[in-house]
Design a protein around this nucleic acid. Structure first.
Lengths: 366, 366
DNA sequence: GCCCGATAATAATGCGCATAATCCCCTTGT
DNA sequence: ACAAGGGGATTATGCGCATTATTATCGGGC
């Protein structure tokens, strides 16, 4: 173990060539007009092996090269509210892909948090430059920040579908439309007709997609959409009762567990009287995630795929459209909160319950 | 938003000074012989504010400065076996502290994995140089790698107690000795006398500390130690029965849940016939962590404290001994797998169960 | 009147690498 | 015999910053 780190100059000296030659051999790319003979090339490679040289990533980067570091930026401040449960799986996927690609991950934890979201201001921009590119995570991205990324041609990719900026934003997302569609179809197949959508009418992409999936599926089935937008779980439960809904698809931003409790309080059983279907996974950890019927976002795979996408963006200049915008399927979660509607069978007819459905109310609590 | 990034030279031009002067003002440190007047200083500061300058971390680092990046290196390959569940909390703590200190985190996911553990070879060393310092995580560190770190005076800190290298290794660990001592005392206070230690006799620090805590506490109480080192859960259960043990303290490397099942298979109830106490937290996620009596390693706090320690190591040259070696207390987990020994009460006397202990075998399964 | 020291700042250098610009030599065509 | 061209490499430059060495000015002490 030498005291001073070995540089290209050291390798060059040993091989009897110039530092530039070493750099050319390493990058295996001859910038038009430069020629290296096979023999020289081999001498350099030998010297590299003998000295155990490896490039200094800092210098590499400063000189305008790549350094195999990819940044991860989360718009949401991760910690308040245990967002780690939600974002963790993405990171796991990212790390997994990084390991395979021989890439290091830089977490931009230093970015200032303003109004509960991280901002990419002044030093933020500079810090991005450490990495070859950056993965962006979270809902509330900032338009001007995006514009800057595009302007500077800095490689980046989103985790989560993005349609703004004229489709110029590369992303790997989850197919909420199809998943929601599938969920609603599942309820319809069981015989439900009065199916409500519980959630707020935001303009974020997941919400738009879920609403799209819900509305179009209901429409195709000749059923009418019923949106329940009450904030309060008790009010939601009341609305469901008033409208005689037999099933609810619930946006994960809503407190599903509290809705469940509110329904029980009103004397309704789940899924006996009302079926509940969760459209995704909430930020908060559920007490018994497996019990909830719904679908699961393939978060680990999204992370891994996003890193791979970004890696290719960095290598190639441009990718075919279908690679830049990837939508992954969500896995169906069977769960125990879905059953045929009561009104199609004799009241109290337990045979109508889904297979394996629990018999007592206490055990049903997901 | 300027197209080209603003450099110290830009700031210098605006303030009508030299680039070096800007650097001096920024670092607020005058290297003996250099003087900056208050007026000039202010002009530079103004220019910095106006231009929105912020340092390029890459250049900073290349020039031998600090760049507010701290590396995290995990010896164990994180993924196989869901180590994320175990290492995740450390990372959460690290991130939390990083956020407060304005530091970015670099995960060395690129380090080659050999024999299931990451190695800090060739390019590993170079890559460490990106960061101001590095946190080391995991059991199986390599002596020669450590030596290199010490030789090169590279700032680092361990998460987890380290006694090798003559106490020259800074760490933040969990106080396994005290926690185990406390656990055993808890059993003794309940009336247990035949208390066994289940686990292998490794030479890793946690094992040594747990054994130390166990042995010394037993000795102090005038009881004799009984080590059960069988690999197989069934064999362990058999040994426990043969020796008439009424309580087992279990190293988390052992499959506690399978031991539990094996005891049930032999007709013993937990905690009715045998109390179980888990000495820490297993890598694998338990089915019902809260049910297990034992103690919890303050992993988030360890991560945070380690980052703070490292940050201070980087800033100051040397720290007082008690700051370099920190042991944090483990939290007692009440759980439901501990009760007074059967032989002190009438057989079948349920009053001997811990308060709130479940009545049926099925529900007792943690 | 001159040297010394303190003050105030600048020029110069190097970190390790990528890359543009340049140079040398040998072959080929005319 | 000489220009043209291309293979084979080198030298030079700059990335943005920290730091060392150097320059310039001014006020006192003798």
């Amino acid at each position: 173990m030498p005291r001073r780190r070995i540089t290209q100059a050291d390798v060059a000296a040993m091989a009897g060539v110039s530092q530039a030659t070493v750099s050319f051999v390493l990058n295996d790319r001859l910038p038009a007009g430069v020629h290296i003979s096979a023999e020289t090339r081999q001498r350099v490679l030998d010297a590299i092996r003998i000295t155990g040289y490896s490039a200094n990533p800092v210098a590499q980067r400063l000189a305008g090269g790549r350094n195999q570091i990819i940044g991860v930026f989360t718009y949401e401040a991760t910690f308040p509210g245990g967002g780690r449960d939600f974002y963790g799986p993405f990171l796991v996927g990212i790390e997994h892909a990084a390991e395979q690609l021989g890439i290091d991950i830089l977490l931009f934890t230093s970015a200032r948090v303003v109004d509960g979201r991280r901002r990419l201001t002044r030093d933020g921009w500079q810090r991005l430059g450490i990495a070859d590119g950056c993965l962006l995570l979270g809902q509330h991205e900032d338009r001007s920040e995006l514009q800057h990324l595009l302007d500077t041609n800095y490689p980046f990719a989103f985790i989560g579908k993005r349609t703004s900026e004229g489709g110029r934003l590369p992303y790997v997302g989850a197919d909420y439309v199809a998943a929601t569609r599938h969920a609603v179809e599942r309820l319809i197949a069981l015989g439900h007709q009065r199916i409500g959508y519980v959630g707020e009418l935001g303009t974020d992409q997941p919400t738009l997609d879920r609403l799209d999936g819900y509305r179009s599926t209901m429409h195709d089935a000749g059923l009418s959409s019923r949106l329940v937008t009450e904030e309060d779980p008790a009010a939601t439960a009341a609305a469901a009762v008033d409208q005689g809904l037999t099933a609810l698809v619930v946006a994960p931003e809503r407190d599903a567990e509290e809705l469940y409790d509110a329904l029980l309080l009103r004397g309704l059983t789940v899924p006996g009287d009302v079926s509940l279907l969760l459209l995704g996974q909430p930020q908060r950890r559920l007490r018994r995630p497996q019990e909830w019927s719904g679908f699961a976002i393939p978060r680990e795979e999204m992370g891994a795929r996003a890193l791979q996408l970004l890696s290719r963006l960095i290598a190639n200049q441009d990718l075919p459209e279908q690679d830049q915008h990837q939508l992954l399927d969500c896995a169906v979660v069977e769960g125990r909160t879905v059953a045929p509607p009561r009104d199609r069978t004799a009241p109290g007819d337990d045979a109508a319950l889904a297979p394996g459905a629990p018999q007592s109310r206490a055990q049903t609590t997901p």
